[in-house]
Design a protein around this nucleic acid. Structure first.
Lengths: 295, 295
DNA sequence: CATTGGCATACCGAAAGAATATGGGTTGGC
DNA sequence: GCCAACCCATATTCTTTCGGTATGCCAATG
């Protein structure tokens, strides 16, 4: 059973005439006549009654006709759906984000995305520093909003912004009275650190920053997330050096101050698999750039 | 869009491999590979991700796959439905019948038909003597149960039985005391007749019967239907000569008696268009013969 | 009886399909 | 680290199928 034959059959059934149908199909009448007879041979029964004034569906022909139109429509729809997905007009995109960025980015990013890709299903998933790579590689997320970027041969990165490192402290801390804190004032103070530098690029950036200024801060605690760090800071266990955007999720009682002579920052990036060629990724990137630019 | 390509596509998507799919399709691997690429060219986007261990649907491919299976099934189902209709396993048949036969035939015919052609939609329509030909010719009924048969070059007839002509009279008529009525006793009595013999073959059969026995019966009334005739008989307007099966629909107060020396009868027949080749007609004929044989 | 309108058949050139042979890239074993 | 195995892609050739033109057949019409 061939879709071409089915299309011809439908045309003849609708035109109730081989000649008329051939005209509409922009082909000659004889080959159409041949195709119809081949279809009848394939079915094993006449589909048309040949009269002197044209052709007319038999009962068997009516049974086929009832389904043929639908089958044609479904095939065409399938092709169109595939094209739409490939062009980014339809489909789904699963967006992973790291929680530090959630408060700063998502409230503006989500409406922006819905406006840009209205036919697309959106899906969000929080990523941890330790799983984000795997989630991209196994395609359980399409793109990841990361801080900092992921480095991996299979993963493509687009830097879309940066966040300054700031000092987070309890509001009652004497340093909080300063508008910005000179690096020297950190010397010897306890630090609430993120995971070991070899496991967490953010942490290694902080380590590098301190080393560059020849500051030593004893590690008073090591935690997994920025939020845990802020909890310990609030509890008076020490200070933390965190990306500026963490302020937005900070509990009351925590204040952030610039580090006077350090302009170190951490990249905000969009990451995706190199072999994901969905145009949705480009669109997502545009939206994310726009939102992060106004951070 | 070609069904073959769609079928190949589904096979490759399910096997997640061109080679495996080719094996299942009993063809070589290269032409299948070519067809898949042609389909991708037609869609304008890759449908598979080529890995080192086989192929995997892209998002666009998934969108197509979701509809392709259904389209294939629908096309196959259409072909099968057409075959089923052609073979008489499915379909519909519209049965016309003349009302005189209804009481005698339908109660046994309908269950017989439902048993014989369970997948078929049945449809019944009462026919009048004047419209039965037209209803067959315009296909608004597929077969007609007629008494007597229709004669027309486009219409095929199968005689399936006959009904004896009997005399219908009021129960209080003196003739009713006889077991059967000699023809001679009809001489001069008023007759309730059906339409003019040139318009109604049943009527012309009665006329011939009387003429052959040299009986003259003045026409006391001419009516369209057997039932009207019986009403007038009951009202005492005259006698009627009617097919035996009319007894089953006769009102109380009417009795039927054999005509002692007349064995004239009227044919019961199944009629259909010569160009209707539905096997359902044969089946219908079998059922009708069986039922009428036991009348 | 000729003309017209409609479908079917015959035949030919063009296009598409399938098979065989082969290339290239990746994986996994020795 | 090299070689064999595996899998998909490409090239070439042969066959099938398709579409076009020319023509035939039949019925209806005047």
């Amino acid at each position: 059973m061939d879709l071409r034959r089915l299309r011809y059959f439908v045309a003849v059934a609708e035109a109730r005439s081989v000649g008329k149908a051939a005209e509409r199909l922009r082909m000659a009448q004889p080959p159409l006549s041949v195709q119809i007879r081949k279809l009848e041979a394939e079915i094993g029964a006449p589909l048309f009654r040949r009269g002197t004034r044209g052709m007319d569906l038999t009962e068997a022909g009516q049974a086929l006709f009832a389904r043929a139109g639908e089958a044609l429509a479904l095939a065409a729809d399938g092709a169109e759906a595939a094209r739409a997905v490939a062009a980014g007009r339809r489909g789904r995109i699963s967006v992973g984000y790291m929680f530090v960025l959630a408060n700063a980015v998502l409230p503006r990013l989500i409406p922006e995305l819905r406006r840009s890709i209205p036919g697309v299903d959106l899906d969000f998933a929080e990523l941890s520093a330790s799983t984000r790579e795997a989630r991209l590689l196994d395609r359980s997320v399409t793109v990841a909003l990361c801080m900092p970027a992921i480095h991996h041969p299979e993963i493509q990165v687009a830097r879309i912004g940066a966040q300054l490192f700031m000092l987070a402290m309890p509001i009652r801390s004497p340093l909080a009275r300063l508008g910005s804190v000179p690096m020297a004032r950190l010397q010897g103070r306890p630090l609430i650190a993120l995971p070991r530098p070899d496991q967490d690029p953010a942490s290694s950036a902080v380590t590098a920053l301190l080393r560059r200024h020849q500051i030593v801060m004893p590690v008073a605690g090591r935690v997994e997330t920025v939020h845990s760090a802020m909890s310990l800071v609030l509890a008076g266990e020490g200070l933390a050096i965190l990306p500026a955007c963490a302020q937005l999720g900070a509990p009351r009682g925590i204040v952030f101050r610039r580090l006077r002579d350090a302009t170190d920052s951490i990249d905000v990036a969009v990451c995706w698999r190199r072999d994901s060629h969905s145009p949705l990724i480009r669109t997502f990137l545009k939206c994310a750039e726009k939102v992060v630019a106004r951070l």
